[in-house]
Amino acid sequence: MSTETEIHDPASMSGLELLRAAMSDPDPDRPGIWRLLGMGAKEIEEGRVSFTVTPQADFANPLGSVHGGICATLLDSVMGCAVHTTLPAGVGYTTLELKINYIRAVAVDAGELTATGTVIHVGGRTATAEGKVFSDDGKLVAHGTTTCIVFR
Rank of each mutant, 00 (worst) to 15 (best):
Y93F: 15
D109W: 12
Y93P: 01
A115C: 03
T114V: 15
D137W: 09
G138Y: 08
K139D: 14
V106N: 03
G131P: 02
V122E: 00
N101W: 09
A110I: 09
F134R: 13
I103K: 09
R104S: 13
A115L: 04
G138S: 04
V83G: 01
V122W: 02
K132N: 12
V141K: 05
L75G: 00
A105Y: 13
V108W: 07
A105E: 15
I100S: 05
G124V: 09
S77K: 01
V106D: 04
V106C: 07
H84W: 14
Y93I: 06
T86P: 00
K99C: 05
H121T: 13
I103T: 09
K132P: 00
A129Y: 07
L113Q: 03
T116S: 11
K132M: 11
E112V: 14
L140P: 01
V122K: 04
G138F: 09
G117D: 00
K99S: 15
A105F: 13
K139Y: 13
T85N: 06
G117E: 00
T128H: 06
N101G: 08
V106E: 04
N101F: 09
E130M: 13
K139M: 14
A82Y: 05
A107D: 15
L75D: 02
T94C: 13
G92W: 11
V91Q: 08
V108P: 01
E130F: 12
P88N: 07
Y102Q: 10
V119C: 00
D136V: 07
V119R: 00
A89E: 10
Y102G: 05
L75A: 04
L113T: 03
L74V: 02
L98Y: 11
S135F: 07
G124A: 14
G124T: 14
L113K: 03
L96C: 05
R125V: 11
A115V: 01
T95P: 00
M79K: 05
T95G: 09
L113W: 04
I103R: 11
L74I: 02
R125I: 10
S135T: 15
S135I: 06
H121L: 11
G117F: 02
L96N: 10
I120T: 14
V91I: 14
L140V: 08
G111H: 07
V106R: 03
K132I: 13
T85A: 04
R125A: 14
L140Y: 10
R125Y: 09
V133Y: 06
H84C: 10
R104C: 10
T73P: 03
V106Y: 05
